[in-house]
Amino acid sequence: MAYFTYTPPRNPVPLEGRVGILLVNLGTPDNTGYLAVRRYLKEFLSDRRVIEAPPIIWQPILQAAVLSRRPFESGANYARIWDRQENASPLLVYTRRQAEKLAERFRAEGVPVTYGMRYGNPSIKSAVEELMDRGCDRIVTIPLYPQYSATTTATANDQLFRTLMRLRRQPSITTVPSFPDHPLFIKALETSVRETLAGLSFKPQRLVASYHGLPKSCVEQGDSYQDECARTTRALVRALGLRSEQVPMTFQSRFGPMEWLQPYTAPFVQALPSQGITRIAVIMPGFMADCIETLDEIGNELREEFMEAGGEEFAIVPCLNDSNGAIDLLEDLARRHMAGFRAR
Rank of each mutant, 00 (worst) to 15 (best):
T155A: 08
P71I: 03
A156G: 08
F179L: 12
V208C: 02
W260Q: 09
T232K: 14
S74Y: 03
Q221M: 12
N11Y: 12
R206L: 13
L102P: 06
P90H: 08
N25G: 07
R194L: 00
E16I: 10
T155S: 13
P12T: 14
S149P: 13
L240S: 05
I327Q: 00
I61D: 02
A2V: 10
A271H: 09
A53P: 01
D227Q: 15
S172Y: 06
Q85F: 09
R168C: 05
L131H: 05
N31E: 00
L242G: 00
G276Q: 09
E259G: 02
N157M: 04
V176I: 08
I327T: 09
G299M: 06
V24I: 15
A150D: 10
R70G: 10
L272Q: 07
K187S: 15
L240M: 07
V208G: 04
F161V: 08
A79I: 07
M307V: 15
K187L: 11
D137G: 06
E297R: 07
L329Q: 03
A209R: 03
T233K: 14
N321H: 06
A239N: 06
L164H: 05
R97H: 00
N157Q: 11
Y119G: 05
Y34K: 08
V237W: 11
P318H: 05
Y225H: 13
L62Q: 08
Q221G: 13
D30Q: 02
L330W: 01
I277K: 01
R39L: 07
E43K: 09
E308M: 14
T196F: 09
P60C: 03
G20I: 04
C136K: 01
F72A: 13
E228M: 15
R162F: 12
A281W: 00
D328W: 02
A99F: 06
E190V: 01
V113Q: 12
I81A: 06
Q270G: 00
R279S: 13
V50D: 12
T196L: 09
A127N: 10
T175F: 11
V13M: 10
G256N: 05
R168Q: 13
D328M: 10
V140S: 02
A79W: 02
R84M: 04
Q63I: 04
H182F: 11
K216M: 15
G325N: 04
A188H: 05
F44M: 09
R107V: 15
T233Q: 13
L67R: 06
A156N: 04
I56L: 14
E195K: 10
G213Y: 07
V50S: 13
S224W: 12
C291N: 13
I81H: 06
P285G: 10
P183H: 12
V93R: 01
T114L: 09
L45Q: 00
V93G: 03
L62M: 05
A209N: 12
P318K: 02
G75H: 08
L272W: 01
P55S: 10
D322C: 04
R134A: 08
A76Y: 03
L240V: 07
R279W: 00
D296Y: 15
